[in-house]
Simulated assay, not measured.
Amino acid sequence: MAVFTTVSQDEIARWLLDHDLGEVRALRGIASGIENSNFFLTMEQDGVTREYVLTIFERLRFDQLPYYLHLMDHLARHGISVPAPMPARDGEILRELKGKPATIVSRLPGASQLAPQPGHCAQVGAMLARMHLAGQDYPRQQPNLRSLAWWQQTAPEIAPFLDADQRRLLADEIAHQTAFFGSPDYAALQGGPCHCDLFRDNVLFDTAGGQQTLGGFFDFYFAGHDKWLFDLAVTVNDWCIDLPTGALDVPRAEAMLRAYHAVRPLTAVEGRHWQDMLRAGALRFWVSRLWDFYLPREADMLQPHDPTHFERILRRRLDAAAALPWV
């Protein structure tokens, strides 16, 4: 969502001639994030103004993108509040713009809640469970591209930038996760389409009548088939922690987990491996942030994240046992 590929309002107006969305009234880049070029797009049609998000994909290929876009469409049709892709007149939801894949989706209401309370976490947990269940009959298949194989492949590229203690932590945790992923218990875990990146800035809350209600999930471009417990662990590792230390915030974590469990009951094998998945979620984002920090790409609005944040979280997950006492 940093802007790697710049486009003008006139270029977008010409590109949109094949859509039935009206006339372009405004276009502005979105500064947050580091993967794609994203823009807020204001359109007017028959006197009505509507908001959309235009995404130009910088890393993902045309052949990879249908999984994400059709997953969003599938979830929206199943009552999950996610951005809905806007097809062109020929029905296509993915087209070329400036030599790269691009799409337009509806813009959800609300704003990110960056200081969540247990009530926010409960709403996120319940919708995440509903999303997992709604995706069970999604027919397309694509693995999580930032899972174990990617960690193993990326580790040698980032290791030269680390000190000896960090290299040891990285190697030991990849070895642990390799063994875990190869175990019968891991194979027994339930799974399906997962968001895989459900951080605070990928969720919107809409304020009405003094109450904040969940507006929806967005930015599905790290989604893939994975274990549902991994998706939950990634979410807890961001929503339910003390940011300066990485320690779990118990009231928020319990609120999210119990709300999730009420919709999609967690199993005994999931309970036994909760700490392993919290570690896996922390490792995944430590590796990717190291990669983005030390091997960056140029972008007009690039804001790489601090990799030490997830190093702290991983060390915390190693030091403190985590359990799901009600499963």
Rank of each mutant, 00 (worst) to 15 (best):
58 E>A: 00
126 A>F: 12
206 D>N: 10
178 T>I: 03
158 I>K: 05
153 Q>Y: 08
317 R>N: 04
265 P>H: 04
171 A>L: 05
322 A>H: 15
6 T>P: 04
274 W>S: 03
28 R>G: 07
165 D>V: 14
311 E>N: 02
212 Q>V: 07
150 W>M: 01
154 T>H: 02
286 W>H: 06
119 G>R: 07
143 P>A: 08
285 F>D: 04
27 L>M: 04
324 L>S: 06
4 F>R: 14
216 G>E: 05
158 I>P: 03
255 A>H: 02
321 A>E: 10
110 G>M: 10
259 A>L: 07
66 P>I: 05
133 L>W: 05
173 E>S: 07
138 Y>G: 02
50 R>C: 02
137 D>M: 07
252 R>M: 12
273 H>L: 09
265 P>D: 13
208 A>H: 11
45 Q>R: 15
187 A>R: 11
253 A>P: 11
212 Q>F: 00
103 T>L: 02
260 Y>C: 05
41 L>C: 10
8 S>F: 09
279 R>D: 03
56 I>S: 04
142 Q>Y: 05
96 E>T: 15
46 D>L: 15
279 R>K: 08
151 W>Y: 03
201 D>I: 13
32 S>N: 11
87 P>E: 01
131 M>V: 01
127 M>F: 12
79 G>S: 10
125 G>Q: 06
46 D>G: 07
29 G>M: 07
39 F>P: 13
153 Q>F: 07
177 Q>H: 07
146 R>H: 11
217 F>S: 11
47 G>C: 09
281 G>F: 03
43 M>G: 11
308 T>K: 07
80 I>G: 08
144 N>H: 02
88 A>V: 04
135 G>M: 08
18 D>C: 11
260 Y>M: 05
126 A>I: 00
11 E>M: 02
307 P>D: 09
276 D>H: 04
118 P>S: 06
27 L>D: 11
154 T>W: 01
323 A>K: 11
198 L>C: 09
261 H>N: 15
274 W>V: 14
113 Q>H: 05
171 A>T: 14
228 W>T: 13
290 L>C: 15
291 W>P: 01
291 W>T: 06
